[in-house]
């Protein structure tokens, strides 16, 4: 299975992060300034749920240790010490499509 529809664009408000299940993969979809990104549910640092995180412009912030990443470039922001794994995303007529070829996992899991 590769490209799957996870949700529609109006399922995720601006600057919001929503959790979805596709088969047995759980993932988050974030809407940062109209751009959609998809990534695993937990923080690369530890299991703090990123669904509780915050979006500021293009930056995703984990709420525990305030690790930050630029969602568009993947660049590490303040405090972050390891990269955020991201799924490939494309939007087709309002449908948010994610390439779920392989479930992304961090080494501590």
């Amino acid at each position: 299975m590769s490209w799957q529809q996870v949700c529609t664009t109006d399922d995720v408000d601006e600057d919001a992060i929503e959790e979805f299940d596709v088969g047995d993969i759980t993932l988050l979809v974030a809407n940062a300034g109209g751009e959609y990104y998809a990534f695993p549910p937990n923080c690369p640092h530890q299991e703090t749920p990123l669904s509780m995180g915050m979006i500021e412009g293009e930056t995703l912030i984990c709420i525990k240790h305030l690790w930050q990443w630029n969602l568009r470039t993947g660049e590490l922001g303040d405090n972050a010490e390891s990269p955020l794994l991201k799924y490939e995303v494309k939007v087709e007529e309002g449908a948010v499509m994610v390439n779920l070829e392989k479930e992304l996992k961090y080494n501590y899991q």
């Binding site: 915050m54 912030i61 709420i63 525990k64 240790h65 305030l66």
Partner: peptide, 13 residues
Amino acid sequence: EWSHLVNRTTSVL
């Protein structure tokens, strides 16, 4: 302030 959810979100950031 790192330990307070309030201070992390409204101040440290």
